[in-house]
Simulated scan of single mutants.
Amino acid sequence: MEIFGASLKLGLTSFGGPVAHLSYFKDEYIDKRKWLDDRTYADIIALCQFLPGPASSQVGISVGMLRGGLLGGLISWFGFTVPSVIVLVLFALLYQSFALGDAAWIASLKIVAVAVVAHAVIGLGKKLTPDKPRIAVALAAAAIMLFFPSAMVQIGIIIGAAVLGYFVFSGQGGSNIQPFSVSISKKQGIASLLILAVLLMGLPIVSQAVSNTYITIFDIFFRVGSIVFGGGHVVLPLLEQEVVPNGMLTGGEFLAGYGMAQAVPGPLFTFSSYLGTMISGITGAIIATIAIFLPSFLLVVGALPFLSELRQRSSFQGVLTGVNASVVGILLAALYDPVFTSSVAGGSDFALAAVLFGLLHFWKTPAWKVVIIGVILGTGMNYIFN
């Protein structure tokens, strides 16, 4: 109950995205409860930055595991995640029940998504592509995605960037990486990674062989959760390519949910709960949510026993450098299509997007406040000009 109470409090109050989440975690877990010291917490953050998946959720899972074992990690994730899951499932049900697709405030949420993704591209670009070689990788990734938009091409870009990073960027990582010690055995880690590998290889085969909506949902969201580097915003293009072209959702439905996801606390990966509801009701939401977060558990358990050694290797750092640069390009491509092309229909829409971007980027307004401002301004503009 101790772990659940702390994580639920964070799930109800942690607005502002992954970086803000880590600050909330430090205040609650380290400063107030003294579960960890600052050094261990910093090492956990470094660990999760090396893994695909939602970094802040993985940090919360790791803290829970150190506090209460594997069950503690599960409880920590549940408490942090369930509030935003509930809100997004309810939003999806309302969207379907009341045909909200043409509502002015739904159109405003799509414009909010333009500002949020543009802000994310710039923020990630500064952090992950600080020099010309990495900028070149990002631009190449964006160009390839725009010429050949598909989920398989995105995976190919990430793999290609990893190989390129191994040869080009190895040896450029920092030398002040600290060792990391954990209680999880290497056998447990290997077993976890084997489960991940079996599911990654087996789910697409089963999904093709068995025509079942729930298996298809699990396959899609598990694969996306396994390959997303760079934080929650990068999940946008990957999921869009999986659910929109095949008709599971329209582009408008997709972006409306993404805009709403900015207004709730907790991890952005709970956007999957909205998508699962839109595809196949509450059961679809449960399956999608479990599927997209399950790789995070398997990766954390699998990586903890080995990461201390891997982080010392320049070749491993080089691989991640290449991958991180490529995800900036993938997100840049998504900023144009589907985000911009599906949301901005004229000068007034672009003006609103520019104002919201300015609030995010220059005035540092929290994302959830920008959502509220965007909906109010967008709805007001709709009544004035239409």
Results as ranks from 00 to 15, higher is better:
6 A>Q: 09
11 G>N: 11
18 P>L: 03
20 A>N: 09
22 L>E: 01
24 Y>W: 15
53 G>V: 01
61 I>A: 03
61 I>W: 13
72 G>P: 02
73 G>L: 14
82 V>W: 13
98 F>A: 10
104 A>C: 05
107 A>F: 15
112 V>P: 09
116 V>E: 02
126 K>H: 09
128 L>Y: 12
136 A>V: 06
136 A>N: 13
139 L>D: 03
143 A>P: 11
144 I>N: 00
146 L>S: 12
177 I>F: 09
178 Q>D: 14
180 F>T: 07
188 Q>K: 05
197 A>F: 15
205 I>W: 12
206 V>Q: 07
230 G>Y: 05
233 H>C: 03
241 Q>N: 09
241 Q>T: 14
248 M>Q: 10
249 L>R: 03
258 Y>P: 00
258 Y>N: 01
261 A>Q: 07
265 P>S: 09
266 G>N: 10
268 L>T: 05
273 S>I: 10
277 T>S: 13
285 A>D: 08
302 G>V: 12
305 P>E: 02
305 P>K: 10
319 V>W: 07
320 L>G: 00
321 T>K: 14
324 N>W: 10
341 T>V: 15
341 T>F: 11
346 G>W: 13
347 G>A: 12
353 A>N: 12
354 A>G: 04
356 L>F: 11
363 W>Y: 13
379 T>C: 05
381 M>R: 07
382 N>R: 08
385 F>M: 13
